[in-house]
């Protein structure tokens, strides 16, 4: 696993953790069986994993978007002398 991927995965985990904390319904009352403690636990785990996946995919595809850009710029030669392409992480 490359360093890139580890960084991306960590960002995804942290962001999903933050989302999970904000989504935590602290007033839950376990009234109905799909709201029982076991089910809530299953929701939290499943939701967290899926959220990590979505964040990870997002970061990965955004990175590729910038890579494409750099590639195409190389291809169309450096006539315009355009700058950098590395600002993937500042939006997570």
């Amino acid at each position: 696993m490359s360093a890139q991927r580890i960084i991306r995965l960590s960002i995804a985990v942290v962001a999903s953790g933050a989302s999970l904390a904000l989504s935590w319904p602290y007033w839950r009352d376990f009234g109905y069986w799909p709201e029982s403690r076991t089910m809530w636990l299953a929701y939290f785990i499943l939701g967290f994993i899926l959220a990590v996946y979505v964040f990870y995919v997002f970061l990965g595809s955004l990175r590729t978007l910038f890579e494409h850009d750099a590639l195409e710029r190389e291809k169309s030669s450096a006539a315009c002398g355009c700058g950098e392409s590395g600002c993937k992480e500042d939006v997570a």
Binding site: S19, S23, P25, G31, Y32, Y43, F44, L50, A51
Partner: peptide, 14 residues
């Protein structure tokens, strides 16, 4: 039911 509050919050955050 209440579980939508969790699922809705988490995924619309994305």
């Amino acid at each position: 039911p209440e579980f939508w509050q969790f699922w809705g919050s988490l995924f619309s955050a994305l």
